[in-house]
Design a binder for these strands. Sequence first.
DNA 1: GTGAAAGCGCTAACAA
DNA 2: TTGTTAGCGCTTTCAC
Lengths: 337, 337
Amino acid sequence: MPTMAEIAKRAGVALSTVSYALSGKRPVSEEAKKRIQQAIKDLEYQPNTLARALATKKTKIIALLYPSSVSGLSAPQIEFLTSVAETATRKGYATLLWTSLHEDQEILHMTQQGFIDGVLLMEIALHDPRVAMLKARHYPFTMIGHGTDNDGLSFVDLDFHSALQTSVEYLLTLGHTNIALMTHSLTLLHKEIGHIVRTKEGFAKVMHAHQLQDITCSSESSEEAGYLATKTLLAEHPTLSALILTDPWVSGGVLRALSERNLKVPDHFSLLAITSPRLAEMTTPTLTSVDFPYVEMGRIGVEMLIHTLEGQQKKPQQLLLKPALTVRRSTGPHTRN
Amino acid sequence: MPTMAEIAKRAGVALSTVSYALSGKRPVSEEAKKRIQQAIKDLEYQPNTLARALATKKTKIIALLYPSSVSGLSAPQIEFLTSVAETATRKGYATLLWTSLHEDQEILHMTQQGFIDGVLLMEIALHDPRVAMLKARHYPFTMIGHGTDNDGLSFVDLDFHSALQTSVEYLLTLGHTNIALMTHSLTLLHKEIGHIVRTKEGFAKVMHAHQLQDITCSSESSEEAGYLATKTLLAEHPTLSALILTDPWVSGGVLRALSERNLKVPDHFSLLAITSPRLAEMTTPTLTSVDFPYVEMGRIGVEMLIHTLEGQQKKPQQLLLKPALTVRRSTGPHTRN
DNA sequence: GTGAAAGCGCTAACAA
DNA sequence: TTGTTAGCGCTTTCAC
């Protein structure tokens, strides 16, 4: 692989002239430019990004801190990852997938090794030690989600209060008043992961505003767990006529439990999920959903991060997306007595 | 951020002694080691990976070449990505997610910039230009999937012939003889992506071996497309009693089309998918499936790549995984006449 | 407009 | 065992 020195030699100019011709940070005569371009073509020269990074202290790499499956956190949606990677590529950055096994310590190391320009953090807990650490070190990062104290921090998140309000009010419109919420596993709640806490809060708030009881339960992320959770739920609340899900992976089990009780969806029972359209369309019947904007969140998160990296954005940006409702085949008017 | 020079100074040794103490490539006295360790702790020193990479020409980064959504290829499963990232982490490597928008050219660039030690290639076409290019440049890579000519190349892939044989023979056991195959969209077939070509071949081969007609169709990856494809299929082949799917994302539509014809699954019609258990359990009823070993393929692919990178494996390794069948609720004895 | 040379923070060959 | 030093391939300052 040719180096810049070889290009310089072949073009009959100084090494630095090649560098400046490439970066445009100093005027270079047309004559010289031409000869340099030719040499680059002849030798199929590619600048060595590594050497450049060492000199500039910029790698053009961002890291996506990805919750490890071991930690019991939910895996991100593929749409989100794709969106992150493609946005980064479009902006001239590469994406490093980082599954931290030892969390805090590893993050610290990583950020100090100079390989990464900035970090995208997911699954933010209300009081997240990672956030505290990165903030203390003034390391550039953007959050997908947000915690309790977001002073001086940038994030994009779904507006879960709005999501729950939209969900509940749509069900109310259909005449449902006995509505329950089934969230992700309790592990997440105990870790005080922002989205689950806010989902519960949002649900409670809307239900109370309408002077209704807020019934909540949770389920691990599997068909069987969803089945069992629903059975329990129906046993305890026989008059329930609608259920809001946050985890589409349980929907199969939920539907099975309902069908065992001869509760037809949507004739006797309505189901609404906060999820991606893609997953909402996998079940039978397809699920009415409050659409989780994975693609948008990925894109915006990366854009925010890169803006701060490139100094185009000094002030922290904080964005809450309001999700839209898509009516499919799992919701209908209240008919049970 | 402290540098190695500062550590050396504080510990009262030469710069190289610090380097050797860290790498262990040269004996260092206990005395010196102790002082160096202390200095490292005091200053919270972290070696700069970038500088190390420039000197050694090893970055400890592998890239996963990820089919861009624009290209019409299917997105990988999240289980696969997670498995890749976690295996890499465990082996001391980081994973770069690379969504190539301009394909060939970009790959070439990337590999020449020195940032990546090796590449994991997905969605391999029978005659894949990327493979030809990487091979010609002697760039280290491993394939998830394989093409027609695999001389000197390493790969891990599912044994699609075996997958189809398992599928068909199970359906035959249940008494089905009018069996169809619904594959991913034709785009993939036209690009001669290995897995889809081999799936069709495998199906044809087994069916012919049993002197049965091999009926195949395809569908884009959505509920609606699956619905339409199934309607057409049933109209053309009214006596069909079983269907094999390669794309779980169409299953909702398939089930809807069947139910419109009053074909109950599994009572009147059997459905079998080649997919991950997780997705197979999302539908109602849950799908009997030939399990696609995403986790295993990710792990093995990374391990193969790292072995060759570290020179532990000179000869190319080629592995075809035979998938297992998991019976769920979508298959049953043949009853239609 | 151009060139020479001093870094960036490491590794590893060479010398002791 | 240890120290000195020449790279790795680039950017950027300083000098002309």
